[in-house]
């Protein structure tokens, strides 16, 4: 059990860092967090997920490049008609294409596995033997999930940028409002968009973590989370449910596109961040309530 070994290391670290009366250090969870990040990102599965995500922009880019020969056209993911004119738009297209399914799915694997996976592998009880505290462990798990979502978003964006540079011309970026801005500003906006996408996923991460505390099977937690993400999006597409849609977490996901207007249109972005915050608080606290009170048998 290599994971258990690594855990043992941190626990050793923790013990050394904590003084005799076990007063928490100011940077109390850094050691645990560093260890958790290491475990997450060293895992082969995580690397595979990131590699698959990196392939999406390549596919989109090649498809657009091949398709351009016969004129392109409308339809498909957002911004796709703008890609041929400016490679930077491949970043936005790729993010718009991966945000509904690929990114949440990858995140669900990491977040859903966070607690349930440890329980399933029988390592959870050893984790809790350490004087780390369940709350702290949960926070660290959540932080690792967020770090993964940021990394995944950046991987998609970076891969898209590279493919965009290779396959398409670059230059002044035409915003949605028809205003042209210098390429550097376009790059900054692309970075902001990637940040927005990562923030849009915080709700899913909290949801996945909560589901993860409910079960002892990592696979079940991942599947449930993915299922919830898809269900929410199907509900979000049914016109008859317009009344509840503003409260579904994917509802404002595409609002990241509002960063590409001139001036930026903040209303939906604000709604998106507010909604994600509510989901984080709700499912985060639910996960905390569940995890700190349940019996750990595995």
């Amino acid at each position: 059990m290599s994971r258990a070994d690594t855990r043992a290391d941190t626990q050793a670290d923790g013990e050394l860092g904590v003084s005799g009366d076990r007063a928490p250090r100011p940077l109390w969870s850094l050691g645990l967090l560093r260890n958790e990040l290491g475990t997450t990102f060293r895992r082969r599965r995580t690397l595979m997920l990131l590699a698959v995500l990196a392939c999406v922009p390549v596919l989109v880019g090649i498809a657009v490049r091949v398709q351009t020969a016969d004129g392109g056209g409308r339809g498909g993911p957002a911004f796709i008609s703008l890609v041929t004119n400016n490679g930077l738009f491949l970043v936005f297209t790729s993010l718009a294409a991966t945000l509904p399914v690929f990114l949440p799915m990858a995140l669900a694997v990491v977040a859903g596995d966070a607690i349930a996976g440890e329980a399933g592998a029988g390592t959870l009880r050893y984790l809790l033997v350490a004087p780390a505290g369940r709350t702290r462990l949960l926070l660290v798990k959540y932080a690792a999930a967020l770090a993964f979502s940021l990394a995944a978003t950046l991987v998609v964006a970076a891969s898209a940028l590279i493919v965009g540079v290779l396959l398409f011309p670059l230059g002044e970026v035409t915003l949605l409002s028809g205003t042209a801005v210098p390429f550097t500003e376009g790059l900054l906006r692309a970075l902001a968009v990637a940040g927005m996408v990562a923030l849009s996923l915080t709700g899913v991460a909290a949801l996945g973590l909560f589901v993860s505390t409910l079960t002892g099977s990592g696979i079940a937690a991942m599947a449930t989370t993915v299922g919830l993400v898809l269900t929410a999006q199907i509900l979000d597409a049914l016109p008859q449910l317009a009344a509840v849609q503003p409260y579904l977490f994917p509802h404002y996901w595409l609002s990241f596109a509002d960063l590409l207007r001139d001036p930026v249109y903040w209303d939906d972005i604000r709604s998106n961040l507010g909604l994600q915050a509510v989901y984080v608080l709700l499912f985060g606290s639910a996960a905390w309530a569940r995890f700190t009170t349940r019996d750990i048998t595995a």
């Binding site: 409308r74 957002a78 911004f79 915003l175 028809g178 596109a257 249109y265």
Partner: peptide, 29 residues
């Protein structure tokens, strides 16, 4: 006047006797 669509925008700009419309969805002016 700009019509805010999801991930697209339609702008209609009048400045003196010049009128422009720009549809970002199809990148058409």
């Amino acid at each position: 006047v700009s019509v805010i669509d999801k991930a697209a925008e339609y702008s209609l700009v009048r400045n003196g006797d010049k009128v422009w419309a720009y549809d970002s969805g199809s990148n058409t002016a």
